[in-house]
């Protein structure tokens, strides 16, 4: 891709606009997802375990496990991604535990967040920071 001077200028302009309202766009996207899932309810912090590596050697494939005994469903969010939603696990009657593992993409170092909807309609959340290292040679 060839970048012209005009494009460079436009990029600089874009960057300054983004700088004028730091994080808003991304934070709002997470907040919308959370509001849609919880309906704005208060969230506790007990009874949900989020397991993710402290440091991910590559952001393309980060293993994550969520576990909340008695939960109806668990939402997983990558709060620093352009589109934060990762997954919603809905547990059926034959789920032996309210535990699930998957692999997610993280665009940069950020907080991964899980929110569990419990059987009584209450919500709990857990957050963990995952540092995504930007190396490039990889070994």
């Amino acid at each position: 891709m060839t970048i012209t001077r005009r494009q460079t200028f436009m990029m600089a302009l874009g960057a300054s606009v983004a700088a004028a309202m730091p994080f808003r766009a991304f934070a709002d996207a997470s907040e919308d997802s959370i509001a849609a899932f919880t309906g704005g309810a208060e969230m506790g912090t007990e009874g949900l375990t989020l397991t993710a590596p402290e440091i991910a050697e590559n952001g393309n494939t980060v293993p994550v496990e969520v576990s909340a005994p008695g939960a109806v469903s668990i939402m997983l969010l990558a709060t620093g991604n352009p589109t934060p939603d990762a997954a919603i696990f809905n547990f059926g009657p034959l789920a032996a535990s309210q535990t699930a593992s998957t692999r997610i993409r993280l665009a940069k170092t950020q907080n991964v967040m899980a929110i569990a909807k419990m059987a009584d309609g209450s919500f709990v959340q857990a957050t963990q920071e995952v540092k995504v290292t930007i190396g490039g040679c990889g070994g």
């Binding site: 050697e57 290292t133 930007i134 190396g135 490039g136 040679c137 990889g138 070994g139």
Partner: peptide, 10 residues
């Protein structure tokens, strides 16, 4: 480490 890369023996 070379930057954030953990060097192996290649």
């Amino acid at each position: 480490y070379i930057r954030a890369d953990h060097l192996s023996q290649g």
